[in-house]
Design a protein around this nucleic acid. Sequence first.
DNA 1: CCAGTTCATCGACAAATGTCAATCTATGGG
DNA 2: CCCATAGATTGACATTTGTCGATGAACTGG
Lengths: 132, 132
Amino acid sequence: MTFVQQPVLVPAAPKPTALLPLTDVTDAAACGSSVGRAAIAPADADALARQLKALADPARLRILSIVGAHLDSEACVCDLTDVLTLSQPTISHHLKVLVDAGFLTRSKRGTWSYYRLVPGALGGVAQVLPSL
Amino acid sequence: MTFVQQPVLVPAAPKPTALLPLTDVTDAAACGSSVGRAAIAPADADALARQLKALADPARLRILSIVGAHLDSEACVCDLTDVLTLSQPTISHHLKVLVDAGFLTRSKRGTWSYYRLVPGALGGVAQVLPSL
DNA sequence: CCAGTTCATCGACAAATGTCAATCTATGGG
DNA sequence: CCCATAGATTGACATTTGTCGATGAACTGG
């Protein structure tokens, strides 16, 4: 189990302006704290929060994990309904959330819908987090 | 701007049983998909979702960023009320969420409350994400 | 002791979210 | 054709969440 850290390739990334754009660094409060660098821009915080919101659900994390656990990082809905204790519409809803957030892609073949991990999408979020 | 990637040291981590405990790997659906490894355990998905839920808010991301932007990774509430366009009770609420989730610590000195980043907390989440 | 400051807590409210039953839309097989 | 199956959509519902105003608690300076 090595996890080669793919070349990122985030698709739904809203253009990371400089990974950490500024807000402003011009104040000195009475409590005597000093600023070392600039903080995240509000627009970037919004975008990152949207991505994290899509991940911040136990069912969706399990879905991503189950899809990623398949040999080709691809699974159909029946693979999920078997394991998750949730109704089929609920699972379908979670899948839509993950697709809209850019973590999964959907491809319909015949009667079945196959979902696939977007390479680097999770890694992109993981890369930005520690630099907050 | 280098971001040295600290030695992790996650404090509030709920004991990662093996980073990816199993659920079960014993089925073969009609759609013909094959399992390569085990998925995340439901309990671990719950724990990770709780952490992510604490992060999945623009105001809280900005708070973490502002605290981390200070030279000693420490800031008082007044540093936040100056920048964020939110009422003081709302900011206090977000701070409590981040403390409860293990991303910040609070230390009161005199009239001021100082919040400090928990070293490795964000990195711990970031490390687990790509291995889903 | 009193007034002002800093921050947390409480109560209320609208909005967002997770869930399900019911329904709809393909697709495939007789 | 007709029916069965896989999955998406819809509508409804309870719960959670983000926000604020009002209030409370603790410390500081006159």
